[in-house]
């Protein structure tokens, strides 16, 4: 089956690739584009390790038909850091020990970013809700919620 050419904006960069028909966005990002930050954990939408933002909204890239992102804006954890500097969320994850094995981190960070983009000072419940589609087997979630609280504080301070 012929591959299809598509173009989209990945982490601010124009990107054009040929994708497999029926291929999912996760595979194409990883194997074709080479952005390895989203991870395969289940291929069925239950784990959240493949979470990316499509036009600013979190979606599960393993369940997105790759050709559907033609012309869309995609953000992944691969583009979250500001050059050599960590994003405040990434920094808070480091300092708060919110990553252990690291496999859920990229998806978790994108879910958190989508939340903070909408809501600069979320409650702990709102944070728990925002990451409820992202599983973590190491931390027990509390350090992750703590880190997001801290990141939100730091980001508010930065903008004011």
């Amino acid at each position: 089956m012929a591959k299809k050419p598509i173009s989209f904006v990945l982490n601010g960069q124009d990107t054009s690739v040929f994708v497999e028909q029926g291929g999912n966005l996760l595979d194409e990002l990883r194997r074709t584009v080479g952005d390895l930050s989203p991870k395969f954990g289940c291929g069925q939408g239950t784990c959240g390790a493949c979470t990316v933002l499509i036009n600013g909204e979190p979606q599960l890239s393993c369940l997105v038909l790759a050709e559907r992102v033609e012309g869309q804006r995609i953000d992944t954890n691969g583009g979250l850091a500001e050059g050599p500097d960590l994003h405040p969320l990434q920094k808070a994850f480091v300092e708060g020990f919110a990553a252990q094995c690291g496999f859920c981190s990229s998806g978790m960070l994108m879910a958190a970013k989508a939340l903070l983009d909408r809501n600069a000072s979320p409650s702990r419940d709102e944070i728990a809700e925002a990451i409820s589609g992202n599983l973590c087997r190491c931390t027990g979630y509390e350090p992750i919620i703590d880190a997001i609280v801290v990141a939100a504080e730091n980001m508010r301070r930065r903008t004011t």
Binding site: G22, N24, G43, Q44, G45, L60, C62, L63, V64, L65, R68
Partner: peptide, 24 residues
């Protein structure tokens, strides 16, 4: 027919043999 794909793409990913065309 594929809508949001949250159920159908799982079948695609897991190699469901009952269909080979997606219609959108």
């Amino acid at each position: 027919y594929i809508a949001g794909g949250t159920l159908l793409m799982r079948k695609v990913n897991y190699g469901d043999q009952s269909f080979n065309q997606l219609v959108q």
